[in-house]
Design a binder for these strands. Sequence first.
DNA 1: GTCGATGCAAACGCTTTGCATAGTG
DNA 2: CACTATGCAAAGCGTTTGCATCGAC
Lengths: 142, 142
Amino acid sequence: MTDTERKFCDFLKSKGLKLTPERKAVVEACLKLPKHFEAEDVYLKSRESSKRRISRATVYRTLPLVVESGLLREVVFTEKHTHYEATSNYRHHEHLVCIKCGKVIEFTNRRLEDALEQVARDCQFKGKEHKVEIVGYCRKCR
Amino acid sequence: MTDTERKFCDFLKSKGLKLTPERKAVVEACLKLPKHFEAEDVYLKSRESSKRRISRATVYRTLPLVVESGLLREVVFTEKHTHYEATSNYRHHEHLVCIKCGKVIEFTNRRLEDALEQVARDCQFKGKEHKVEIVGYCRKCR
DNA sequence: GTCGATGCAAACGCTTTGCATAGTG
DNA sequence: CACTATGCAAAGCGTTTGCATCGAC
């Protein structure tokens, strides 16, 4: 079991939830998928690896748990349905999305993160997360 | 006809689209509604004011036009369905959303906006808009 | 053995679409 | 008069849920 899987396992325990082969398969699928993916990708990928026929329902029931455990976060808010990315091995970053070709670029910016924290403080908010996305045209499409 | 309505009217002309009573009613409804609203609100409100029985289809077909015209922008990305706010009379701002009570607070932050512009420049992106939202717990719910 | 987890299929909520008709420019 | 816009109802699509069964702890 990898560190990541252990982390998820611990999370489940702490919540009094059970570690099932289906849940394991969903997490594994998330880690194998390319950077950005959606529920349907997880569904297909988890079926590849696992003997069991994992249902979409299970995927949809499990993904929020994986997010809550901290292994996944929701990203790319331009499309109507939910997109995810694994948090492991990535330093915190935000995204630029090209409206034309769909290209997604990651960036980190200290000033931006600082400003966000300051705003939360100023408003007496306990910030849990932030969603930041720049939408526009990439170098090629502009 | 108000300035706002004229702006929408001009937008339609520039696109070779027609100004219909239904479209007028949709725009009027958007301007009458409280700060944040969704398609269904527009549907109900536009029916109140107009003699015509405006269909949901027309509302859904019109809203993207109103957004494109610059009178409306999409906000509050936490929920799955689309939320809007009128841009008139507001200076550009972003939102904090309380996960517990749903309270939405607006804020403006120069450093944040500057950082976003700088990122777009650095990535050779032509930024069209950005989506920024801080999710957390407000003073009362923290 | 208990109580949570699963698969299935049906339901859901918001949004989009095909079609025949109406109405703007 | 042409061509776009409309209402209606049905379809679409991602997601959620009820239910009977299964299986982890």
